[in-house]
Write a protein that binds this DNA or RNA. Structure first.
Lengths: 345, 345
DNA sequence: CTGTTAGCGCATTCAT
DNA sequence: ATGAATGCGCTAACAG
């Protein structure tokens, strides 16, 4: 049987309350007494039963999620995952509030972070935008003792506790290597479509892609990056122009969202086989395009995993605990038509 | 505040004990009483607090893991993950026993399953071998009310509750598509090295690989499968012979373990760049070979995830509960040198 | 058949 | 500075 607070109390010759004070290092215990208790804890190899502790505390974790608006399918999926987590609130002892903010708008995001702060939550998860006002809003939360996790897009300059997302430089590099090897005999340049250079994850992917292409397909010409703001219609327009201007186009890397526009443009032009296309995020559209062959490969981050991980980390940090590292590492997934997960994502 | 058993008792006008009987559908409650209670549960939208229930029960879950012996790195990693889970036993309320059995030995495995049965555990996780005596040993456990999860290699003919592993036909197919696209201008045949056709996962991978190669590289010659029994030395020997016999060899797919042998043979022959090599399972050796370019791609299943998933499912089944489906689906991971996880696997 | 009571391991008043 | 008592939500003896 594993030791309990009673065992410690008995061994140290003190009461439960004193043991509790030491365990949660609360004030009001003499040094000698504290020592006695700590020795008992050590000797018995005590580990606190978190479930029982939470039960006694009737602990609930008020959490705030801040997500971008817009009809970007990945972000909508992420929002759905947060709703799913909300549905599990009772059993997970969480109370989740969601704030939606305009995409790519640093001021709005900073304002939302301050609004979150007013709620005095245990933790905040936020899809970050790399801007000074956002950094200071995050730092303000941290100074209030609120745990902060960045989601999908990181904020390296800030004091956030954790980033629940993928290494986007590595993701871009992966796309670059795949592109280089898949191009095969095709000649012609490769195009890059981004969402916005304002978010860290897109900048990182671009950097990685360029580096890997230089290695796996040296001398291959890369066209200047175009920004589609993760908007399907805008991406459609941009890619259609690209296809018209570049009859020799060999490949296209879409490192942001707006896959529907990319796919539509390729298929309208009848160039879906001729152009090697690599994109990000598994959605019903991108899945179908992968199966039909319009897309050649898809990189993905599991939004559900990211949300669940963010919650685990937030709860743990709120309690001052550590977490299983390996379980919180978000993988860069590569999907071909053959290894798609069974469920629609 | 969410409703508790007290609320139900009050609303239904019965005692706590009766509520408990209904909740855990234990006998000894009149139909009308049961109805009253059930209506109250429904009306209040009650959901049981599992943590509190486990606390009250002082529930622990005696679990048995049955793993193959041998110095197969993947299996050793799996064993390490089980040890890690054992270290978390206190907080996860599990009591894990591990049985090691000779690899590829159906009788030994069946015997171990019967030995496990004698321990009357709540659940058993087993790396299965596809043989009749194993099927009936598993079925016997299930009839005793013991939850059974197959790990890594499935046992489709049995009554196991769940398979914690990947779709190996799809894994083989993924390897086939990758091989077809990576071969590029190379001519010559492609070789296949298996562990043993006795285990289901190897048979499945072979099937998938053949199918995908026929699509992505039609007409490409496949050499007859050789079996290396997941033994590095034997694989080294087999592959060295293969390389000597086939000076034009374009690719090699290793669908079992024994990567060290594969890598050594390729490098000894100086053919590591000329031959496109795809293998399974991320280990320190395969990771290094991927980074050096000896291996071109690696398929992986996350052993840690599989073990943790098996435990979650076993506990849930032991309690007659369901699980979050998406969280228990094991992905077929594709690794290139660029998207390797940071930690050594 | 149904109800009472006493914990599970811990946190938290309120006394002393 | 320390201790006794009570309760978190649930289960399990034991009574009726």
């Amino acid at each position: 049987m594993r030791p309990t607070v009673h065992d410690i109390a008995a061994r140290a010759g003190v009461s439960l309350a004193t043991v509790d004070r030491v365990l949660n290092n609360r004030p009001g215990v003499r040094g000698v007494t504290r020592d006695k208790v700590e020795r008992a804890i050590e000797a018995l190899g005590y580990v606190r039963d978190v479930a029982a502790a939470n039960l006694a505390k009737s602990r609930i974790y008020p959490l705030v999620f801040i997500l971008p608006e817009g009809d970007n399918t990945f972000m909508r999926g992420l929002a759905a995952e947060v709703e799913a987590a909300k549905a599990r609130s009772a059993v997970e002892r969480t109370a989740i509030t969601v704030f939606s903010v305009p995409a790519f708008d640093p001021e709005a995001l900073a304002a939302a972070l301050h609004k979150a702060r007013a709620l005095d939550p245990a933790g905040v998860a936020v899809v970050a935008i790399d801007a000074p006002e956002v950094v200071s809003a995050v730092d303000a939360l941290r100074e209030d003792g609120v745990a902060v996790v960045t989601l999908v897009s990181d904020l390296p300059g800030s004091s956030r506790d954790h980033f629940a997302g993928v290494d986007n430089v590595a993701a871009g590099r992966t796309a670059g290597t795949l592109m280089g090897r898949f191009l095969g005999g095709r000649n012609g340049p490769v195009a890059i479509v981004a969402g916005s250079m304002l978010v860290r994850d897109h900048r990182d992917r671009l950097e990685g892609f360029g580096a890997a292409m230089a290695e796996s397909a040296p001398g291959r010409r890369l066209l200047p990056v175009v920004e589609g703001h993760d908007d399907p219609a805008e991406v459609d327009r941009l890619v259609s122009n690209l296809l018209a201007d570049q009859p020799e186009l060999a490949g296209i890397y879409s490192l942001g969202a707006g896959n529907r526009g990319l796919i539509a443009a390729l298929e309208k032009a009848g160039r879906e086989k001729a152009v090697c296309a690599i994109a990000h995020e598994l959605t019903p559209h991108s899945r179908a395009a992968l199966l039909s062959g319009t897309l050649d490969a898809l990189l993905n981050q599991d939004g559900g995993h990211e949300v669940r991980s963010a919650i685990r980390v937030l709860k743990a940090r709120a309690d001052g605990l550590s977490v299983i590292g390996a379980q919180e590492r978000i993988r860069i997934e590569i999907f071909l038509k053959d290894n798609l997960p069974v469920d629609p994502a």
